[in-house]
Amino acid sequence: MWMEPFDQAATVLYALSLTSAGGFAALFLLRARRGDADERTRQSLEKHQDYFAYLSANIDGAEPLLPPPGQLSPIELKAIQSKLLEWIETIGGEYRGRLTALCRELGLVEQERKRLRSPKHAVRIEAAYRLGIMRAEQCTDELLQLLEQEGGESTAFVVGRSAAKCAETLDQLRRLLLHLIEYHPDAQQLIADIIASSSLDPAPLYIELLRMEDRETPVCVALIGLTGRNDPDAFGPLNRFISSECKEIRIKAAKALLQYSHMLPMERLGDLIRHSDWEIRAVAIKAIGEWQLDFDIEALNEGMADEEWWVRHYSAASLAQLGPAGYPDRAFDLSAEGGTR
């Protein structure tokens, strides 16, 4: 009667040992393969060191950069690609264009484009990532299609960024932007960052988005995207949003608008400083200090008595930044440490 539990136990133990043995075998196999690949990559890079020296030395020449002489094994090509991608990402301007042209010449773009149609998701994502780095303009539409399959997954941002880098026309960028807004309405900052990685100027797109006044997300993304830029075209539309019904939009618009403080009439600035939203009061007061605006000190003193902590904080900070130019000693006391910008 004792045999029965023994048999059962034996089955369970067999199953467990097989699973772990198989797992470890796979683990060591993977490690061996990776170690081997790493070693061969290292060797290839060493072998082609002169080639990279040639690239660095002649990247500013008039002639296009040539692929390395002789036949390349797939491993060599992969090694060269890895280094080229690394360079492309740190180097900008004209030289980047020459390196991406070299990638095209080496057949890397075509190769990754094929992998874009792979049945394996991981391969597709990796291909998309690399195409983005290589600025493969001809693949933008395919990348956008791939993006549509991604939906709400976090890999969508990888594909999205690549599409932004590859985008050649504003239409493509618009498609990308609208898609990201639709599927990731909350990731507004990240979307703005992705769009900013494009070589195109997204300002016209954002101004377009501002016209979708009834939809909160696009307007918010546009306001975020326009903050930190200096585009007089945006000034008009921004001005309107200060009186938006949505608080989020009002605040973002005020932030963006205060970038153009030189274009803001004084009365308008005064409105902002006495606005009913404390967030707007705070950013307006902060801007006075930051831009050293010639503004009535009295308003800042009023700000020091504001009910909201941040407004008081920035009033003190701004007073300190404006320097000792005619304002009460009190501010100095309160803002001596005010450098908490």
Binding site: Y51, N58, E63
Partner: peptide, 15 residues
């Protein structure tokens, strides 16, 4: 040959 293509030819020559 320009410097760039000379440099490139040097890769082959070295091989």
């Amino acid at each position: 040959q320009s410097l760039a293509s000379t440099h490139f030819t040097a890769l082959s020559a070295k091989n």
